[in-house]
């Protein structure tokens, strides 16, 4: 998508912003990881509270991964997005059913 031979100032500006976003996401992800590890390591929270919190942190990280590092936020990624959500749907359905009917 990026034309390397023809970098005008607009493109440069865009690349710069992109880089900024990448770095912010990267820092946030490292931050989340540190938070997650410290919650577990320090026993600071009750298990009932810690487990959902860890799951939420993990979900956000997956979102960052998909949308920023794997560029799903950019144009032309509608199709992969649809397929990924389709797969997530099928997997969640499986897990939900097994939890609800088999193990509950």
């Amino acid at each position: 998508m990026t034309d390397n031979t023809n970098t005008n100032s607009f493109q440069k500006q865009k690349n710069k912003e992109e880089m900024k976003k990448q770095l912010i996401t990267f820092a946030l992800m490292i931050g989340f990881t540190i938070v997650a590890f410290s919650i577990v390591a320090t026993n600071a929270m009750d298990k009932m509270f810690a487990v959902p919190l860890l799951l939420i942190l993990a979900l956000i990280q997956v979102g960052f991964q998909f949308y920023y590092f794997m560029h799903m936020k950019d144009r032309g990624h509608e199709f992969p997005a649809m397929m990924i959500y389709g797969g997530v749907f099928a997997a969640l359905l499986t897990i939900a059913a097994l939890v609800a009917i088999v193990w509950w």
Binding site: L93, T94, A97, L98, I101, V102
Partner: peptide, 9 residues
């Protein structure tokens, strides 16, 4: 029963 679920999913 898990087998039945996985198989039919």
């Amino acid at each position: 029963v898990i087998w039945q679920h996985l198989f039919w999913i």
